[in-house]
Design a protein around this nucleic acid. Sequence first.
DNA 1: ACAAAAGTGTTCGTGGTACACCCATGC
DNA 2: GCATGGGTGTACCACGAACACTTTTGT
Lengths: 232, 232
Amino acid sequence: MSSESWTPPAVLVAVDLVILTLRDSALNVLLVERGIDPFRGARALPGGFLNNAGEDIVAAARRELAEEANLDAATLHLEQLGAYGEPGRDPRGRVVSVAYLAISPGLPEPVAGTDAARAAWTPVDEALSDTARLAFDHRRILLDGVERARAKLENTSLATAFCAPTFTIAELQRVYEAVWGVALDPRNFYRKVQAVPDFIVPAGNQRTTKGRPARLFRAGSRTELTPPLTRP
Amino acid sequence: MSSESWTPPAVLVAVDLVILTLRDSALNVLLVERGIDPFRGARALPGGFLNNAGEDIVAAARRELAEEANLDAATLHLEQLGAYGEPGRDPRGRVVSVAYLAISPGLPEPVAGTDAARAAWTPVDEALSDTARLAFDHRRILLDGVERARAKLENTSLATAFCAPTFTIAELQRVYEAVWGVALDPRNFYRKVQAVPDFIVPAGNQRTTKGRPARLFRAGSRTELTPPLTRP
DNA sequence: ACAAAAGTGTTCGTGGTACACCCATGC
DNA sequence: GCATGGGTGTACCACGAACACTTTTGT
């Protein structure tokens, strides 16, 4: 260690949000167009600095979720991805950003006249394309977020966080197919998810546009999936 | 957002290390006895503040690894666990700590007359016992680190990071048994690990204290295990 | 020879995949 | 009726658990 009179350097702490949802059976992420430098005009993940020195980091994430995306953190899944603190990631100075992954059901309106007017759902494939050019290291953070979601679909009930309070098994299947980017057999999927105790529980009937009406389900109490649903 | 003249609050950033190894077929973690307040005299994870505003966080982790544990980060596994930033976790003020998980092979001497003299390998069971009373939120960080290690044994070649450059399959099995806390069938384990392409590759012969000599292996190029080794 | 640990062969049951088939609705 | 999607039955195959058995060393 150094001498006792040495004091450690202070840095700025920000939060960034990877907010994923399903739109038209495709995985989408919420991006904002930056109104200020650096990276003015470029697209970026929603986020911002801590409000004051006493604000909890996850509280800051929830606040940004409300401010920038008009989403209620109480109703959706929110978990930390990690800290991104490379020197030089922000040209303004030393900023350490704590990234969070949020999963939102359906499509709660592509945000309207709120503080979040500049926010727009963007297909993940497009956001990660070479032409997208996200601000800062947000491409890296988005990649990590998507990978985290992919992995957690296997072992946890995270998929239900993409769905409305009640959903059909086919809707749940579309979550897996969109996030994993694969096609699954509906008949086997149907039995597989019901074989996991307390993963999903029945909740009545529904009729769809075509074909036989599907049963409705709610998310059950089980959070860890045993056995896991393995991707092909 | 607030007015443009508002400046975000600065906080202190620290790194904490969960360094795991195997000693006598038991999972151990490196703990240091704190020489200064707060929590003077209590045991804590090795760690410290960033050296200066330009230091990369993972570089700070590597530096602490060398200073406090006399370990070379180039030779061992190091990955981020996440950020721990609850207000009040450090009585000195607002500190956000970025925790790292390090895996070290064998037992590179319980550290000697170095800067790390106060460091000691401690069985994880003991470190997590109710009487241990780790400083700050280090019990939580240690729990997360152990759980991360457990999970990654299934899907990655992390287990080889606990082993010397060459090792026998029985030694590799002891890693799994110690980290998972279960007993495995040696015969099935033997074939299972060899069935994963490039997980481990042969490297000559060895004789042990008793019984038939075992073949030696090195870690292969494969990092993701497909199929995974599932814990019973 | 005996003990101990390494390594092999084989059986059995479970669980996933593939796919044929039946059911319930809208048109 | 037919088309469409929901839901069921079942045969097959692969893989893991269990365990008898053989091999190679030290003493």
